[in-house]
């Protein structure tokens, strides 16, 4: 299903070839700005809240990788879902003989955003080289696990937000809030004042998708956080599934 969606997305994207160049260009700009931001900050200091430059580069790498994954499939599909609820076109999806949650979650793919995933991965590798002997197999494994958990949490969170569209009509903006919260993940959550740190951890769980995996990579992760991250991922997946079903029951089509 995801593959089909990808194939369709690829076909669509290729038809708009100019977009590929623009996307590449744009991702490079984004990368430049992120690194530029770090460069500007580190031109004035040598550590930010205890994080060194190469650790922050790894953080940007994860930020882009996860952000890319969201941008490739999760966000476009969620936007489509909310539009579907608003305009009533969700009807067509619901009548398909497959799990509706899966269908809406991979409904639209913006293939070019994969560029971001690739750039993010490259950045992580670069940072790992810079970190040198501090990276062990164990840490990489912990990194992979926490990142998977983080992505699952973010996906569930976005699905829950989008499902709100069943009750509240014009909600495209709700993804904007995630987007700006996500921007805050560019920096380690530890530097933020306590209320904001708590928000980024438990309300809009950006910390689990970005800061926690990087902590795992650089060896700052406490085992309790790892376990907590996994448990939270499972809880989020279950909660989002339940909420999605609740929302569906509330769906009445556009003209209701």
């Amino acid at each position: 299903m995801l593959w089909l969606s990808f194939r369709l997305g690829a076909l669509n994207a290729i038809q708009y070839r100019a977009d590929f160049m623009v996307q590449l260009f744009q991702s490079l700009i984004g990368l430049g700005i992120a690194l530029g931001g770090i460069a500007v900050v580190f031109s004035q200091t040598d550590q930010l809240g205890g994080w060194r430059q190469e650790e922050l580069i790894a953080l940007i790498g994860v930020f882009m990788l996860v952000g890319g994954l969201i941008a490739v499939v999760i966000r476009p599909s969620m936007e489509q879902l909310m539009e579907g609820v608003r305009l009533g076109t969700l009807d067509f999806t619901l009548t398909k003989p497959a799990d509706a949650q899966v269908l809406v979650s991979v409904k639209r793919v913006e293939i070019w955003r994969l560029v971001e995933v690739v750039l993010g991965a490259a950045l992580i590798v670069l940072a790992m080289v810079q970190l040198g002997e501090r990276v062990s197999l164990e840490r990489v494994a912990a990194f992979a696990v926490t990142m998977l958990a983080g992505v699952a949490i973010v996906y569930s969170f976005l699905l829950i937000l989008s499902t709100l569209a069943f009750w509240l009509v014009r909600l495209e903006n709700i993804l904007v809030i995630f987007h700006s919260m996500y921007e805050a993940g560019r920096w380690p959550v530890g530097i933020y004042p306590p209320w904001l740190r708590a928000t980024l951890t438990f309300v809009v769980p950006v910390a689990f998708a970005i800061t926690v995996p990087v902590e795992a990579l650089v060896g700052r992760l406490e085992p309790a956080t790892l376990v907590g991250s996994l448990l939270l991922a499972v809880a989020f997946l279950i909660a989002s599934r339940w909420f999605w079903r609740l929302g569906l029951r509330h769906y009445t089509g556009a003209s209701a």
Binding site: L168, L171, E172, N173, I174, V176, I177, H179, S180
Partner: peptide, 10 residues
């Protein structure tokens, strides 16, 4: 409500 959410992000 959407407006409030949007402002919060801003």
């Amino acid at each position: 409500w959407a407006l409030a959410i949007w402002l919060l992000g801003l």
